[in-house]
Each structure stands twice: as structure tokens, then as C-alpha cells.
Write a protein that binds this DNA or RNA. Structure first.
Length: 510
RNA sequence: GGUUCCGUAGCUCAACUGGAUAGAGCAACUGCCUUCUAAGCAGUAGGUUCGGGGUUCGAGUCCCUGCGGGAUCACCA
């Protein structure tokens, strides 16, 4: 390519509004990216899940699709009954207000309390000579939880009221966490509102011979021809299982949004088998949209000690982690002493931008399919291939643009044609800018925010080289000077957009 | 055991889907702040891409096999 071709290319990029954002394709998709249980707070695993799904949603929007972000809340079942039982027995009326605890944390504490009590009772029964397996069934507190679930299914008023109260606490807690995370949903689905539809569908499938009933009354689907196994859909007592609910939820969603051509489930890879089966069943039921269902499967987040285990207390709490990140950002910033003239509010905002930017970039720069290691002590840096490095690059450019405005250097498109020579680093920046739309497309096609993350790092890194090599305002040729301001401006714009796709803000000063 | 995913520098990750000399960051070492923000830049060192076969003009990438690790195969969700 000749010099002229490059300058023309840049002129074109420079003049493009919404660079890297495609025109509407008319395609409409749904992305589910959070599916919490209401018995415990969100943790690091949820962070990867939610950031990933949120980012994929934004990337798909940039690719011209209409996206509906949804959540499925596992608000019913034995897990929440355990918290309810423990609270009733030991809670002494404790509420988030009375204790000052966040609602999801409080309910989580009672879930732990239940487990402790349960273990104690098992130990006592075993002591008395009972087999362990039998003790697990006979422990009084477990029986209480099961009774409570039955009461709930019968809509016993007291049980229902307690269930609503405790779930309400949890939702308030979740809202605070989601708000801090900077993620949002267009619609919420609750399993308590979808499992009945799932049951109906299973009944229908039974009538039409797609499913079959065993002697004990339980309903199954036979997937042996597809190389899988038989799978339970309704228990002998008629109650639903996980699969039943998911069938109902999927169908309800297509009723709510008839135009969607694809439904994306952002769920960990431990559930690959489940979704394979779910999509097969939906297909068997005759829903042709089942072919458009996709399980966006991501790898687990491991700690140096191995897998996170809530029972062993090795879970990294989402709220605590975000607080720590913001705190670390504050420490770094204060050490560097670069925020003269910042108000308290501005400083706080910056710490949040940096802390969350570091966290999101860290979790999203890795291929979602792969499991990743998170070392709380040293994983998240602020130098090198990190969010703050990219944010810093943006702040540097912002400073240049401020100065350019002060000095009245306003780039004009005709400047670019008059350029004598381009430096290698300038060529390579134009080259990188040119790649941006293709990267957004690739990231969308592969549901991989890491492609955007990797790209924006490369761009920032190259810009820093440019920044070091070329002193913009010492340039005597004003045409070249204005071109470099335009180039810097466009780089800043793309950095901001790309970081926006992974949910990270960029500051003008830091 | 069946199915499936993975194994790349001491550590954490890339490698345009089969192309040229496998690249970044962290950690280590050496330089660079009277010049637009040093959260930066330049450089040194670090590799039998887990082992062994095969396909191909060409393999980190595809096939077979061995070893090591994860996930899953629930009347849990």
C-alpha cells in the first residue's frame, strides 16, 4: 500500500460516526447471563458469568442485533427452604434492618447455619448407631425443610409470606451487587413462575407420546437413540425437576419475545450435558426455534487452593472483591499522587472506574471457554496487560486533546492528504484502527469478549510507543501536528468504545 | 468406566481457525523523567508448544496413542 492509501484510509475512519458499530441486521436475540439461587450471595464465579454475558450482549448489539438481557432466578426449591427453616428456628426475628446486614448475606448466613445444624444432627444419629445414609434422610431439620417445600407448593399462607419476605431481602442485596457491577437486565424470570408451564408441557408431551411414564408414575424422555440416556422430567409424586423448569422458561421466553431467533444461555461448562438435553427435548416437542438455542459455556474460576467450595469457606464474595479492587485502586493512585484538583466525588469515581476496570478486564481477557486461575493476592495488577494500563493510555490522550483545544489545533480532513511522510508507528496505528470493526465482528461470531480485550490492549500498547517516540506539540509541520491529534483522538475513541464493550469506563485523568 | 474439555517461558495468558523467526504481561536484570501523565518506553534473559507416532509442501493448531488434569454421566439445582 502506498502512503496515500493509508492517509485516505485514515481519513475514512476518522470521518466515520459510530466506528465499529454495524447497522441494524434485524436479528433479535436473548441473552441469559445470570441464574442465581436465592439462598446465598453472589461470588467470583457469578462475576465471570455476568461480566461475560453482559459483554457478549453489548458486542452483539454493536454487531447490529437487538438484544434482550435476561436473568433466571432460582427462587424456589429446597435450598431456599433450608434458609427459611434455619431462620425460623434460630433467627429470633433478625432482619437486614435490625442487623445492618445485606439481605443476601443474611439469608446466606442462615443457609450456612442450616448446614451446620444438619451435620450436627447427622453426627448425633450416627453416634446412636444409625447408618450415615439413613441419618442424612432422617435428620429432623432436613425433614423440616422438606415439609416446608411441600407447604410452599400448596401455597400455605405463612410459608409463602416468609418465602416472599426472605426472597425480598435477597433481591435487594442482589440489586446492590448488580448495581456496583454495572450490569443490567431487560427482564427477569422467576422459576416460581415458569415451573408450572414446564409441567404442562411435559404432560402434553406425555399425551402425544414424546415422553413416557414408568410404573411408579414418574415421567421420562428416552434419548438413547440420540446416544444419551433416559432423563427424568417429573418425579413420581408429580413435582418438577430442574429440567422441567427450564423447559417452561424457554417456552415462556419465546412467547414473550416471538421475534427472537436465538437464545443464548451463559452458564458454566459443568452444565453442558444439561443444555444438550434441554435443547434436544425442546426439539422433540416440536419447537423449531430449539435449533437457535446456544449454551455459552464458560470455564470455572479456580483459586490457588483449587475449586471454590462454599462449605469450606473458600468462596470469594463478589461484594468484598469489588470493594477490595476499588480500595487497591485508591492506594495505587494515592501513592502516585496524581489527583491534584480532584474533588472527593471525582476521586471516588476514579477509584471505582479503575478497580472495576481492572477486575472486568482481568476476567474477560481470557477465552471464556477456558478455566482460569484467580490468585486473590497477586492476580490483579495495575501494570502491563491490565485494564488500568488501557485506561491510563486513554487519560494520556485526553490530556493531549485538552491541550490541543487550548492551542486551537483543530484537525481538518484535507490535512491528511497533504502529509509528507508517515512514521512506521503511525502506519501501524492506522492498521490497528482499521482492524477494529473486524474484531468486533469476530468477537460477536465467537461470543468472545477476550478478542476485544486483546485488541484494545494491542492498540493501547502501540499508542504508548507512538507517545514515547513522537512529541506531538514539538512538531513544526502543522499539518503533521494536526494529523497526530486526529490520530490520537480516534485511538482514544476506539479505546473508549472497546472498553465499553467489556463494561469498563475510561477516565480523562488519572 | 462412558462422554467431553484442556496441557504453550518459572507464573498468568496470546497465536488471524493449517502458514514464514511461537508472541505479551508478571517475576529477574539493564537503560530512559528540565520535553504532551514513568500506571509509561526501550533492551537482556527465559521454549523439544506434556511424551510418541501419523496426515501435509508446511502442524502449537488435524488424526491415532500414552501420561497428567478438569467437568459430566442424580427422583440436586
Amino acid at each position: 500500500m502506498t502512503q496515500k492509501t493509508w492517509t485516505n484510509l485514515f481519513a475514512e475512519i476518522w470521518a466515520t460516526e459510530n466506528y465499529g458499530v454495524s447497522a441494524s441486521t434485524g436479528k433479535e436475540v436473548m441473552v441469559e447471563y445470570s441464574s442465581p439461587n436465592t439462598n446465598k450471595p453472589l461470588h467470583l464465579g457469578h462475576l465471570r458469568n455476568n461480566f461475560l454475558g453482559w459483554s457478549v450482549s453489548e458486542i452483539l448489539k454493536a454487531n447490529g442485533h437487538t438484544v434482550h438481557k435476561v436473568q433466571i432466578i432460582n427462587d424456589r426449591g429446597i435450598h431456599i427452604c433450608k434458609s427459611m427453616v434455619a431462620w425460623t428456628k434460630f433467627g429470633e426475628g433478625e432482619t437486614p434492618d435490625s442487623s445492618g446486614k445485606k439481605g443476601d448475606k443474611l439469608v446466606g448466613d442462615y443457609y450456612v447455619k442450616f448446614d451446620q445444624e444438619y451435620k450436627k444432627q447427622i453426627a448425633e444419629l450416627v453416634e446412636g448407631g444409625m447408618e450415615k445414609a439413613e441419618a442424612e434422610k432422617q435428620a429432623p431439620i432436613m425433614k423440616e425443610a422438606q415439609e416446608m417445600l411441600l407447604k410452599w407448593e400448596k401455597k400455605d399462607p405463612d410459608t409463602y409470606a416468609l418465602w416472599e419476605k426472605m426472597n425480598g431481602w435477597v433481591y435487594k442485596g442482589f440489586d446492590a451487587t448488580y448495581n456496583q457491577m454495572g450490569v443490567d437486565f431487560d427482564k427477569l424470570y422467576y422459576e416460581s413462575q415458569t415451573f408450572l408451564l414446564g409441567k404442562e408441557e411435559v404432560e402434553k408431551g406425555l399425551e402425544s407420546g414424546i415422553f413416557f411414564k414408568k410404573d411408579d408414575g414418574s415421567v421420562w424422555v428416552d434419548l438413547t437413540e440420540e446416544g444419551l440416556d433416559e432423563k427424568l422430567l417429573l418425579r413420581a409424586d408429580g413435582t418438577s425437576v430442574y429440567m422441567t423448569q427450564d423447559i417452561g422458561t424457554a417456552i415462556l421466553r419465546y412467547r414473550d419475545y416471538p421475534k427472537i431467533s436465538q437464545q443464548i444461555y451463559t452458564v458454566g461448562n459443568e452444565q453442558e450435558y444439561h443444555f444438550k438435553v434441554l435443547f434436544m427435548i425442546l426439539d422433540k416437542l416440536g419447537y423449531d426455534w430449539a435449533k437457535g438455542c446456544y449454551h455459552l459455556s464458560y470455564g470455572m474460576v479456580d483459586l490457588p487452593s483449587g475449586k471454590m467450595k462454599s462449605r469450606e469457606g473458600t468462596v470469594v464474595d463478589a461484594d468484598e472483591l469489588m470493594d477490595e479492587m476499588i480500595d487497591t485502586a485508591r492506594e495505587h493512585t494515592e501513592e502516585l499522587g496524581k489527583i491534584d484538583g480532584f474533588s472527593k466525588e471525582q476521586a471516588a469515581e476514579l477509584y471505582e472506574t479503575l478497580g472495576l476496570g481492572a477486575l472486568k478486564y482481568f476476567l474477560l481477557k481470557v477465552d471464556p471457554k477456558k478455566r482460569m486461575l484467580f490468585d486473590p493476592n497477586e492476580s490483579i495488577q495495575f501494570q502491563g496487560n491490565t485494564g488500568p494500563f488501557i485506561q491510563y493510555t486513554h487519560a494520556r490522550i485526553a490530556a493531549i486533546l485538552r491541550k490541543a483545544e487550548q492551542l486551537n489545533f483543530t484537525p481538518q480532513e484535507e490535512d491528511f492528504n497533504k502529509l509528507e511522510t508517515l512514521q512506521p508507528v503511525e502506519l501501524s496505528l492506522i492498521h490497528l484502527l482499521k482492524d477494529y470493526p473486524a474484531k468486533v465482528k469476530e468477537a460477536g461470531d465467537n461470543y468472545s469478549p477476550d478478542i476485544v480485550a486483546q485488541y484494545v490492549y494491542d492498540l493501547a500498547k502501540e499508542y504508548n510507543r507512538f507517545y514515547q517516540e513522537i512529541s506531538i506539540f514539538n512538531e513544526e509541520d502543522e499539518t503533521a501536528l494536526r494529523f497526530r491529534i486526529a490520530l490520537s483522538g480516534k485511538v482514544a475513541e476506539v479505546i473508549k468504545k472497546a472498553m465499553g464493550l467489556i463494561g469498563a469506563n475510561v477516565p480523562d485523568r488519572m
